[in-house]
Design a protein around this nucleic acid. Structure first.
Lengths: 146, 146
DNA sequence: ATTACTGCAAAGCATTTGCAGACTG
DNA sequence: CAGTCTGCAAATGCTTTGCAGTAAT
């Protein structure tokens, strides 16, 4: 109560017990500059000197997603799911096919787009968009994909 | 040479040996009205009275993709990869969150879109777009997602 | 004290790989 | 015949699940 500095509370999903593993997952997500996979998160936690069980990380992430604190994304050419704090406004990404860097996009081509479906009507709830190509650095370095 | 009607040749990827399993996979894709997973393809083949090994189907699909005859896609909320004949022009889909139906879109919001990236420049090679929501039928039936 | 959470092990799935025999060109 | 396929089994990698002990409220 006196010594240990509590982790930032601002992003804490309400209604969840505050436990060590959860605080560590949240800290990693808070300091990440791009979406991370469950195993990357686990490794970061271990690098910080704590043990981390991948199954626990998955359970925590799933819970955070359910609470709306975290967003889960899948980008093409990547089998693994990635997670990021929901603080970002962005919902779309550019993915470098060379270095796999994921860059958030701030504009959205779908703002006033009505899909033209082959088959009947459709009640649109949302959309996913990814742009892929080479990031600035990779474009200069000779585009060594694969 | 006289009795057995050969499978349609129009879609046959050039340079590939014509074997039973490959013809069957292609036939299933030809008669499919939407993208199928490897295991769905395998089941269709078995329903047709032939045996089908999932690993062989994967190998064949991978080969067809490499030859450009087939396209592999991943839609959100679906872990499995889906495959379709490349005959379609469409590259984008609307996915019904209720019945999982996949509906091709013929227009594209990205035709003249330049992504606004947070971080530097980007050489765009292509993009993926999915719209999700309820298809006409599910919208009427009360939107029973989950 | 309850109920929720986590360490840990093991199961599940989709997909891939290895290998020897079978088949295509 | 030579090289390519395929049946089949087993491995792989991500993710989920089960269970019993531990911790949060």
């Amino acid at each position: 109560m006196e010594g240990a500095l509590m982790a930032e509370e601002k992003n804490w999903p309400e209604g969840l017990k505050r436990t060590g593993p959860r605080e560590r997952v949240l800290e990693v997500l808070e300091s990440a500059d791009q979406p991370l996979s469950a195993s990357q998160i686990s490794k970061h936690i271990e690098d910080g000197g704590n043990s981390s069980w991948i199954s626990t990380v998955y359970r925590i992430l799933e819970l955070f997603v359910k609470k709306g604190a975290v967003t889960k994304i899948n980008v093409m050419g990547n089998e693994v799911a990635l997670y990021e704090l929901n603080r970002f406004r962005h919902k779309h990404y550019a993915v470098c096919v060379s270095c796999k860097k994921i860059i958030p996009m701030s504009n959205c081509p779908m703002e006033k787009f009505m899909p033209d479906l082959e088959d009947g009507e459709f009640h649109v709830l949302g959309h996913n968009i990814e742009v892929y190509g080479y990031c600035g650095a990779c474009a200069k370095q000779g585009k060594s994909e694969d």
